[in-house]
Amino acid sequence: MVQERNKRPSTAKYISRTVTKGELQTLWLFSGVVLDNVISMLNRCPIHRLSKNDILITQGDVNKSCYLLLSGSLSIHLDSRDSDPVTKLRVGESIGELSLIDGQPTSANVIANDLCEVLVLNEERFWTLVNASHAFSRNLLFLLARRLRDNNATISDVMKRQQKYERVSTTDELTGLHNRRWINDKLSRQIKRNQYNNEPLSLLMLDIDRFKSINDNYGHLVGDQVLMAVAEVMSNCIRPTDLVARYGGEEFIIVLPVTELAGAHIVADRVCKDIREKNVDTKTDLQLPKVTVSIGFAQLQNNESMENLVARADTALYQAKNNGRDRVEG
């Protein structure tokens, strides 16, 4: 038999007293309710007392009660009891009504922030109030509507945080370009799309020439300025449909959808030229020699894998390096 642990909180204590009319007047669910008509029934409802950090509701449990907060405050935790609370309940608010109505396991942990007292409406008395009091039913509908709006706002906030974390995990912090993880995913999808549509696709692999000596002779801060300058030039040389990313270290990648080898050659030449002509602001009094890059390019072949396409462009890149740098090969 499944144990309904939430019928009584494990650390709560029964209080041998009845709820007062003054306390009922603070409860939002009883706003507009003729208390004289329900006070005798509510006097039979138990009151629980919770100390700080006592658990009122455990996420995933079966709940058969609605709890109305008479004193103190409660916090709602979605992920775990140790997670930051998503909201807090004050005197007059209630919790547990949704899981009581739909019979589903509870969706959150509810924990006492300080010494609390809650009035407990069991399932029978809850539905008796719904059927007997129009005002109680109306308040309940408003409460559920508000909870729905609050849940939608919470979901929206969670989605925004997820999108932020996704951007952080797929973006190179220094250059603002996407990173290798992002480009590998996008390139794989783009290759499948182009192969399905029988369209060409080309790839550029770019490496900054003698970048190690720049770091060694001028320092890593200057090296960072060079990386950002190269990223800026590449971004200005491509179309909105093209993809660019920092592949690792001083190596970058550009994906050119619907572009044949001749078009890739033109883009590679333009990038190489524009970087050569770029005056890099080092943010210091140091004068850098001209920054140059070597570029290898390749066009996707029939049924070729992403790994093989990248490897061919990388091979062309090292041919450019071996043939004197500041040039393109493909």
Rank of each mutant, 00 (worst) to 15 (best):
E166T: 10
G176L: 11
H178E: 06
R180C: 13
W182E: 09
I183W: 01
I183S: 13
N184V: 05
N184A: 07
D185N: 05
R189C: 02
R189K: 12
K192E: 14
R193T: 11
N197E: 13
N197T: 03
L201S: 03
L201W: 02
S202A: 08
S202L: 06
S202F: 03
L203A: 04
L204M: 06
D209W: 03
K212A: 09
K212G: 03
I214S: 06
I214G: 01
G219Y: 02
H220D: 09
L221N: 01
G223D: 02
D224K: 05
D224G: 09
Q225E: 15
V226Q: 01
M228K: 15
M234C: 15
N236C: 04
L243E: 02
G248I: 15
I254Y: 01
V255I: 15
E260A: 08
A264D: 06
H265D: 12
H265T: 14
D269M: 04
R270E: 11
K273A: 07
D274T: 07
I275A: 14
K278V: 12
D281V: 08
T282C: 12
V291C: 04
V293P: 05
F297V: 02
L300V: 08
N302R: 13
N303E: 14
E304A: 12
M306A: 09
E307K: 12
E307F: 03
